[in-house]
Nucleic acid binder design. Structure first.
Length: 476
RNA sequence: GGUCUGUUGGUGAAGUGGUUUAACACGUCGCCCUCUCAAGGCGAUAUUCACGGGUUCGAAACCCGUACAGACUACCA
């Protein structure tokens, strides 16, 4: 079966990873069924609209290697793809529904609704619109509209019986019709509500699989009633569990790094983010953890989506990103990391060869791009400042001798290469008759000022002859 | 309050009635390697699947109840 899925965000200019994950699931289901992935912008709430949001969504998806087959910027056969440009369509269908007796005009004022709400609250009863406006005749309605009275169109829910449907991940969901409210389909500003627009659009756009957050699970019977009223076939429903923050609360802007762009800017690879996100709430039949997008398409099975919410955990993302980073080709890796280095350090006067070596030195040290800056700090410090641990190490017998031999040898080194530096260290080993810690640590401390760092010869090489000699001179 | 949903270790999770004395991965801890850090290797880390009943020869898995959590209950999506 060919699938058509859709990603239908509202254009708020921000995408948290829960949203992105839904988009990924939608994309994977479309592609694993040889189908299309559609982008539809749900901007029926005009107050929340943000300029440039559509391009932002396209950019994000593109970074993630998710190709939009049809959408506002690459229009297909079932456009327009922005709901605010489809208001005529919704109005037409809403009126059709009224004619069929499945919906009705409602002229109730906000005040009246407010009063009903209060009454319900006082009586500790759930609030439900009372169907007050159902009573108007066709003529009365026409009259009211002619007089410019504001109206909405509400769906007329059945009062008895139950509605059920089958969800791919949650199974059978059953709801009593009596708890379904006569929800608003068309708002008084002429715009449809989400509840209406999504049904009309999904049908008109030929959407076969609806993938969305499980907050819609209990609402779906209402949508099915709409499909039924029009005589349309309801799509396959795949409701997905929420993504929670580490505090166990639903992700939101306030979680900071829960936004894709924040992660991207911190130097997480989009492939790694996608890979991680797919594993939140879904698991493959085998134990594979690292997936290319094509492998995901080949392996994704919506039946294996979990029912319970997943907590977003950066530690695992770090690990996955690290797996991608370490497997990158040197050239690509350097290209990727360099901007993060440039952000914190002035690289003027440093050769490309130096920069590249430095970056490569840390290929298996960092989890994400931004981490490079604190790792390489020692190579940009002018002064070294020994801590207590270093100082006390340097108090030991024989250390001074090791240093002076090293000083002498390194001063007369022929070429400043890692190999030659290693030769010098080896010579010191023989001449001073020390090895292991007693050989390396004194040299390490005097040259770099710290006890922990990458390979000594590399470190010395990158710090540079001039600085090394200066540090050795000022020792004692 | 009502409706719907969920509950396996710090985290992601496997598991659909019987080699499960609960996989795998992240994390954490320990050991090895090593001048150190990182990486890598090895090992430890849930007497038990929210709780209480049942069904069954046998339950994390099936049923019922309770607790807790979340979502929905908007002219938001």
């Amino acid at each position: 079966m060919k699938a058509r899925t859709r990603f239908a965000p509202s254009p708020t200019g921000y995408m948290h990873i829960g949203n992105l994950r839904t988009a990924i699931f939608e994309y994977l289901i479309a592609k694993s069924n040889n189908g299309q992935f559609i982008l539809r912008i749900e901007d029926t709430d005009q107050k929340r609209k943000v300029d440039g949001a559509i391009d932002f969504i396209y950019d994000t998806l593109k970074l993630c290697n998710i190709k939009v087959d049809e959408g506002p910027n690459n229009v297909g056969m079932v456009g327009p793809y922005i709901q605010s440009e489809r208001v005529k369509i919704y109005k037409e269908y809403a009126e059709k529904l009224v004619e069929m007796g499945k919906a009705y005009y409602c002229f109730c004022s906000e005040e009246r609704l407010e009063e009903l709400r209060k009454k319900a609250q006082n009586a500790k009863r759930p609030f439900m619109y009372d169907g007050h406006c159902k009573k108007y005749s066709k003529d009365e309605i026409e009259e009211k509209i002619k007089n410019g009275e504001k109206y909405v169109i509400r769906q007329a829910m059945p009062k008895y019986g139950t509605s059920d449907f089958e969800d791919v991940v949650y199974g059978k969901i059953k709801v009593d019709n009596s708890v379904l409210e006569d929800q608003i389909l068309l708002k008084s500003d002429g715009y449809p509500t989400y509840n209406f627009a999504n049904v009309i659009d999904d049908h008109l756009m030929g959407i076969t699989h609806v993938i969305r957050g499980n907050e819609y699970l209990a609402q779906t019977p209402k949508y099915n009633l709409l499909y039924e009223a029009f005589g349309w076939q309801a799509p396959i429903y795949i409701h997905v569990p929420m993504v929670l923050g580490s505090d166990g609360i639903k992700l939101s802007k306030r979680n900071g790094d829960a936004s894709f762009m924040d992660l991207y800017n911190d130097g997480y690879l989009p492939e790694a983010i996608v890979n991680y996100l797919v594993l939140l709430g879904w698991s493959p039949a085998n134990n594979q953890e690292i997936f290319s997008i094509d492998e995901l398409i080949a392996n994704f099975d919506p039946k294996r989506i979990s029912k319970s919410p997943a907590v977003y955990d950066v530690k695992k993302l770090n690990w996955i990103n690290f797996q991608y980073l370490r497997k990158m080709e040197s050239k690509k890796y350097i290209e990727f990391i360099k901007p993060f280095l440039e952000k914190t350090y002035n690289l003027n006067g440093k050769s490309d060869e130096w920069i590249n070596k430095l970056i490569l030195l840390y290929q298996n040290h960092i989890n994400y791009g931004k981490e490079i800056s604190k790792e390489v700090e020692l190579f940009f410090k002018k002064e070294i400042d020994l801590d207590e641990e270093c100082k006390s190490f340097m108090q030991q017998d024989g250390v001074d001798q090791t240093i002076s031999i090293f000083k002498e040898k390194i001063k007369h080194i022929e070429e400043w290469t890692i190999e030659k530096i290693n030769d010098v260290i080896n010579d010191v080993k023989v001449e001073a008759d020390v090895k292991g810690k007693m050989l390396y640590m004194p040299i390490r401390i005097v040259t770099s000022g710290i006890m922990h760092g990458p390979e000594l010869a590399d470190t010395i090489y990158l710090i540079g002859k001039e600085t090394i000699l200066k540090r050795l001179e000022s020792w004692e």
